[in-house]
Design a protein around this nucleic acid. Structure first.
Lengths: 193, 193
DNA sequence: CGTCTATTTGAATGTACTCAAAAGCGGTGG
DNA sequence: CCACCGCTTTTGAGTACATTCAAATAGACG
């Protein structure tokens, strides 16, 4: 039942037969998280790749000065992992924490390799997914360096309506790359328009 | 001959037989560029994916205010394209220009699809390559938002020694996300250390 | 050799930051 | 259910740092 959404998601890329779907269902485990639970944490190896079914997650980076930077918010149908850590089994530089109770489908590197052997056509699917990630990451980067904080804020609200109810102002500011005080001032300013 | 490097590159991911190698050589065309030539340009569809054999390329974005932002510099064994544009045949948001005379191996979307049909194991190769792109992009983003311009400059010099001979100060500043004047002052400052 | 662009330098400006304090809000335990 | 505690958000004031603008110098290219 929970695997249905993943099946549909994969099916939007390629045609799958019943055996494929079976192998996929076998490979992915349903997992429930409470609010504020960690999916993985920096310095540890990230041994999970999660497909969000319900809820939302923030993926963030702690820099050397002790500042936290939110890389992205993940919602249903998004993937959450530290790709470099998951693939090469090296310590993660990212962490991921739920913003609310979550249900995800989860896989580990061994199972994923096994699944890809069983269903080689998923190589293509993951290639396409990963390509989309590159484009998304690139857009995020270009926005960050070329748009004003106000523009970036509007974009976030547009892309993730309701994010204000899930994330604190501090977290939204972290995503935008400004301090919470600046976001507070910006919001006041926006009201007067 | 020129295709050898690409063969070796692909071979570092999976084992290829002679037929595969043949198909690859067929699919990719050798192309020479002069200095300051465009590989592709914003607003046009990017119909090429290039594997750099010799030379270097800057990949950049022109924002709405007319500012140019260098996303990355590409050197031998790097790939150059606007992924979103290449994959979905939509207008590119990026442009790419050679910093010096270049030799690349180039493919278009149709040929790539055809190649992937002929050599399905390349799906895996491109998946792995694209995953590395995500990690690289992510690192670039995190550096940009969490490190000082000075740290980012040192990192660039470390990653791309000799870049100063290929790119103008203006371009390096653009990569770093500062104005050329600031880079000039920073360099003077660094000398006194 | 001359022109055009890139780089350097100076001075003034502005925008987002830090620090500090008050107000608001949510969650916990009595 | 209410009171308290801690954390978040707001607001103010002062500051720092990269930017803009302007002008001089240096360097590249035809």
């Amino acid at each position: 039942m929970e695997h249905l959404k993943l099946k549909d998601y994969f099916s939007s890329f390629i045609k799958l037969n019943d055996l494929d779907i079976d192998a996929i269902s076998q490979a992915y485990t349903v997992k429930h998280y409470k609010k504020k639970e960690l999916l993985f944490e920096r310095e540890n190896v990230c041994s999970t790749e999660s497909f969000v079914l319900q809820g939302s997650v923030r993926v963030f980076y702690n820099d050397l000065k002790g500042n936290e930077h939110i890389l992205y918010f993940a919602f249903p149908e998004w993937w959450v992992s530290d790709m470099a850590s998951f693939n090469d089994q090296i310590p993660a530089s990212l962490s991921a924490e739920t913003l609310e109770p979550c249900t995800v489908l989860q896989i580990n590197p061994e199972k994923k390799e096994q699944l890809l052997k069983t269903v080689p056509s998923l190589e293509r699917v993951f290639r396409l997914i990963t390509q989309k990630h590159v484009s998304a990451m690139q857009k995020r980067f270009l926005m960050a360096i070329s748009e004003s904080a106000e523009e970036r804020y509007k974009e976030l609200i547009a892309q993730a309506p309701g994010i204000e109810l899930l994330a604190t102002q501090r977290q939204i500011a972290s995503y935008l790359g400004i301090v919470p005080e600046s976001l507070s001032r910006m919001k006041r300013q926006l009201i007067g328009k």
